[in-house]
Amino acid sequence: MSANLIGLLMEATWQTLYMVAVSAVLGAAFGLPLGVFLATSQRGELLSRPLVNRVLGLVVNAARSVPFIILVVAIIPFTRMIAGTSIGTTAAIVPLTIAAVPFIARLIENAIREVDSGLIEAARAMGATPLQIIRKVLIPEALPSITLGLTLAAVSLIGYSAMVGAVGGEGLGDLGIRYGYQRFMPDVMAVVVIILIVLVQLVQSIGEWIAAKVDKRAPKGRGQ
């Protein structure tokens, strides 16, 4: 493999990491509050806003129904408005983030809902405000699940990032298609796949390690 190709692979790896990292952080920044709200705004819950909850739920489901590749091209005007261009790695962050937000929101919602309702009751009995309950009880208690959810989202984003080649997003997936498939270079394809496998393993392992670190539920020294 030529030095030129190795340079391309390294650049593509960096582009993938950049797209995934930025869209994961942005997705979490918007998805966390949305997920917490979805979990706490159902009837009878902490913030009980059943109507808003229903509407937001519909929007989230709709966003999640759109196949990613269609989302990428459908929102090109919006992408141009935000990123100034619809082509390139930075522009690709826009559809990736938009796909990540509802996905992460649902994962966070599930994590928050798993928190024992007895803890919410105890906090209410202490005189805690709904916001205090969210900050001091729900999020800390859901943190192991939230961490695993974000890990899942990051891994999915690595997969999605391969598709943004359609709008010139570059990255590993794009390299694999252009060189490995269109130029008949199976060795490039193989290397791309291996790098992706390593990336996913790495993200998954780091996520699980953090989740285990923040999880105080099981006594130390006992199995997972």
């Binding site: 024992d116 009751e121 202490m126 001091k136 105080k216």
Partner: peptide, 26 residues
């Protein structure tokens, strides 16, 4: 104050952290 059958302690906080919670809230 209230105590519960299933204790309802925060698993993410230590003994001291759990006892501190109502004071933080206040």
């Amino acid at each position: 104050g209230m105590i519960f059958q299933h204790f309802n302690l925060l698993s993410s906080r230590t003994v001291a952290g759990n006892i501190a919670l109502p004071l933080e809230v206040a």
